[in-house]
Amino acid sequence: MSTSSFDADSTLGALLIGTLVSFALFGVTTTQVYIYYRRFPQDSFAMKALVASVWCGESAHAICVAAALYKMLITNYGHPERLLVLPNSFLASTFFGSLVTFGVQTFFAYRIYALSKNLWLPYVWLIPCLCWALSLFRFIPPNIILFAYGHQPAPQFLGRFGPLFDAIWAASAANDLLIAGTLVVLLYGRRNAGLQLTVAMVDKLIAWTIETGVVTSIASIIMLVVFITLPSTFVWLAIFVTIPRLFANSLLASLNSRAALRHDNSHEFEFSIPKSPARLIGRNTSQTNQSHAVEHDRPDEHHEQPR
């Protein structure tokens, strides 16, 4: 990459914008983690550990991306030829980002297993197994290749491993669509067997599942398209550093949405049943006492009136 052919807008500028967006989403992630621990202290230790590990992975990813951006913008200032080799901190950020993505996809795959294990459908267990396999395919091969050959110049590295990364990111997008689609089908099956209040709750779960699953899938597809069409720019890297934030926020939004569902459900229940049994008993008791008092104060008609 010579100085005359160097385009700062499509390389460092794009990466800077992607990093800023990634940091903004990291703030959203931190806020959602705080909300989670405040609202759900009764959750299991495994769930709390998952949320803590996701936030720690996001923090490490943000630190590594910031260190890589500093080296590319400040340390290597005036040397565009050095941009052909990504810094070690950026390679480390790919590990933490893929670790977060793997944890979130594994969680949603387990949710598929938990929803489908009581349905007794033939071969339904193959879907979560396929999701776990695709998650491992996205996590293990890229990290091995990047740590082994990531110090090569970008044209040589992409010419050697570009098709493999195309397949990895395509598999990741397909995995997100498979998870979202399966969850929607399973929730819709439970919707038909529920009560009216349960149906409204399941409808909201279906809508949120579609939204979170489609966002991560669209981001992966866009990054894949940009990586194929514009491999000499850093536009795909700008999208790449934001994808772990989307996965983390989709997990936390799924967990924190339970509070909104409970609030809406109790609100609907309150308006659908205006009088609770306790209030009905209290009202009947008060009415009975009032009737007894009236009868007590009323003169007995069977007694003779005094002359």
Rank of each mutant, 00 (worst) to 15 (best):
residue 1 M to K: 02
residue 4 S to M: 06
residue 5 S to P: 01
residue 9 D to P: 00
residue 15 L to V: 05
residue 17 I to R: 03
residue 18 G to R: 00
residue 18 G to E: 02
residue 22 S to P: 00
residue 26 F to P: 03
residue 28 V to N: 04
residue 28 V to M: 15
residue 39 R to I: 08
residue 42 Q to M: 10
residue 42 Q to D: 13
residue 44 S to T: 15
residue 45 F to P: 06
residue 50 L to G: 12
residue 57 G to T: 01
residue 63 I to F: 12
residue 65 V to E: 04
residue 69 L to F: 13
residue 73 L to P: 03
residue 75 T to C: 04
residue 81 E to H: 01
residue 85 V to P: 02
residue 86 L to Y: 00
residue 95 F to H: 05
residue 96 F to M: 06
residue 97 G to N: 02
residue 98 S to N: 14
residue 99 L to T: 15
residue 102 F to S: 12
residue 107 F to S: 08
residue 109 A to C: 09
residue 115 L to H: 10
residue 121 L to E: 14
residue 122 P to G: 10
residue 126 L to F: 10
residue 126 L to V: 15
residue 134 L to A: 13
residue 149 Y to L: 03
residue 158 L to Q: 06
residue 162 G to C: 08
residue 163 P to N: 01
residue 165 F to T: 09
residue 165 F to V: 02
residue 171 A to R: 01
residue 172 S to D: 14
residue 174 A to N: 08
residue 176 D to R: 08
residue 182 T to L: 09
residue 186 L to V: 09
residue 187 L to V: 08
residue 191 R to E: 09
residue 192 N to S: 14
residue 195 L to W: 11
residue 205 L to N: 07
residue 205 L to E: 07
residue 212 T to F: 07
residue 216 T to L: 01
residue 221 I to L: 09
residue 235 V to F: 08
residue 239 I to R: 03
residue 239 I to S: 09
residue 241 V to K: 07
residue 242 T to P: 04
residue 244 P to K: 04
residue 245 R to N: 11
residue 247 F to G: 00
residue 249 N to F: 06
residue 254 S to K: 04
residue 256 N to V: 04
residue 259 A to E: 12
residue 261 L to P: 03
residue 274 P to T: 09
residue 275 K to V: 14
residue 277 P to V: 01
residue 278 A to M: 10
residue 281 I to C: 11
residue 291 S to C: 12
residue 294 V to M: 14
residue 295 E to S: 12
residue 297 D to V: 07
residue 304 E to S: 13
residue 305 Q to I: 11
residue 306 P to T: 12
